[in-house]
Design a binder for these strands. Structure first.
Length: 396
DNA sequence: TCTGGGGTCCTAGGACCC
DNA sequence: TCTGGGGTCCTAGGACCC
């Protein structure tokens, strides 16, 4: 039995959500109907297009481009700042509608979800349900979505990306050749600007070209990544819809500075400030970080980083600041610094870590002590390897 | 002329171990 | 002069996504 997967994608999410919010709070204009964008702050050098209205799109404005360029393309462009607290609210509201249809809903990003309908379909018509979901979201929340219907996540995602906005598209297995293969290779999920020229050089221009190429050849050329893109081109994807909310695997902040920095003293100050935010988020999730890395970007857009494993995982601000400074000390400044980043990796749950250190049971019997000793030794073994520990003692 | 911020996963080389 | 093979862990960097 094939699976039944939906991918729901909010159309121009940030701009739509801002539009709905503004209308609700007395705005006379719907910014979706005028040339408008949601953008960063040019004076803070974070001026890129985060979302665009359909009208702005007609002027050739694309997401991610500098606002400076967007303005040149359309001189009466209206620019609005994003409001992420509002976006998170709409994202949650949209998710809350989806979980009424299935337990298996994966929040893929702030504005995209996958829904696995396989177990709840029975004899119902999946396309009809897709339309119902789309229309309900519009009616109840005021913004439009695209819904992709397919037998796996990859195909559902490709389908939702067809014609926009406010559309339902199917991409069933029998439709792969007619609907997906004629598309440009750049339209395939997972293929970015570095891979496109390589594929073009190999005379692979469409998704169908890739699908029909020799898999061994693609594998030799691209390794594991080649395996993935070849499978994608052929509509193969077995990844499950992950309904659980997984804890993050890394937490970090980057900051583009209003002005380039030239000394480590200045960079240290920025790092300290970022450390406050990062450790706050770690504590919010009850997580501790084990590996700390500092990332620098020069004014020529050269990125480089250094990292260091901490002796003990931490979410303590002061410890993170000290560690960040130590890492920075080992780095050279390759030029004027435009952006500073700090990230913690290899996150562990702080509860588990506490329990491993302090026996929560105050009953201090010898049995407990032995348990603890075992635990400690086990941890040492796990960390350093059994042989090293025995060897160390036998060396005596 | 200007280019964000938050992530995930993968690779390749070096150190070290048996 | 020729010099294994397997493995893990660590680090730096790259590609991709929204």
């Amino acid at each position: 039995m094939p699976r039944r997967i939906l991918h729901i994608d909010v159309n121009n999410a940030f701009l739509s959500w801002s539009a709905v919010y503004m209308l609700k709070h007395g705005s006379q204009i719907d910014i979706r109907t005028i040339p408008s964008i949601i953008g960063g702050d040019e004076s803070k050098r974070s001026g890129i297009v985060l979302a665009k209205s359909p009208v702005a799109k007609k002027f050739g404005i694309v997401t991610g481009e500098p606002i400076y360029f967007a303005k040149k393309k359309c001189n009466n462009l209206q620019i609005f700042k994003g409001n992420f607290n509002i976006y998170r609210e709409y994202s949650k509201a949209f998710y809350n509608i989806l979980i009424q249809y299935s337990d298996k809903v994966e929040r893929f990003s702030i504005d995209e979800c996958f829904v696995d309908m396989t177990d709840v379909m029975k004899d119902k018509d999946i396309v009809k349900i897709a339309y119902e979901i789309k229309d309900r979201i519009y009616k109840e929340l005021g913004f439009t979505v695209n819904v992709g219907v397919a037998s796996n996540k990859l195909l559902a995602k490709m389908a939702s990306d067809f014609e926009k906005p406010n559309k339902v598209h199917t991409l069933f297995d029998s439709e792969i050749q007619s609907k997906m293969w004629p598309l440009n290779i750049a339209d395939l999920y997972g293929i970015g600007k570095m891979t496109i020229p390589k594929l073009l050089k190999m005379n692979i221009k469409t998704i169908g070209d890739l699908a029909q190429s020799d898999k061994k050849y693609i594998l030799r050329k691209f390794g594991k990544y080649g395996n993935m893109i070849w499978d994608h081109a052929n509509g193969i994807d077995n990844s499950p819809v992950e309904e659980r909310n997984q804890p993050p695997k890394s937490i970090g902040n980057q900051e583009t500075l209003p002005k380039d920095l030239y000394t480590k003293e200045e960079i240290e100050k920025v790092l300290a400030q970022i450390a406050e935010e990062v450790t706050f988020r770690l504590r919010k999730y009850n997580l501790l970080g084990t590996v700390i890395s500092v990332n620098l970007r020069t004014n020529k857009f050269e990125d480089y980083s250094h990292q260091k494993k901490l002796l003990n995982p931490t979410s303590n601000t002061k410890e993170v600041i000290i560690a960040a400074k130590e890492v920075l000390k080992e780095m050279e400044l390759k030029g004027p610094i435009r952006q500073v980043g700090l990230k913690l990796d290899k996150l562990t749950s702080s509860e588990e870590y506490q329990i491993s250190l302090f026996d929560e049971d105050s009953n201090n019997t010898s049995h407990n002590k032995l348990d603890k000793l075992d635990k400690t030794l086990d941890e040492l073994k796990a960390k350093y390897g059994y042989t090293k520990i025995t060897r160390g003692s036998s060396l005596k």
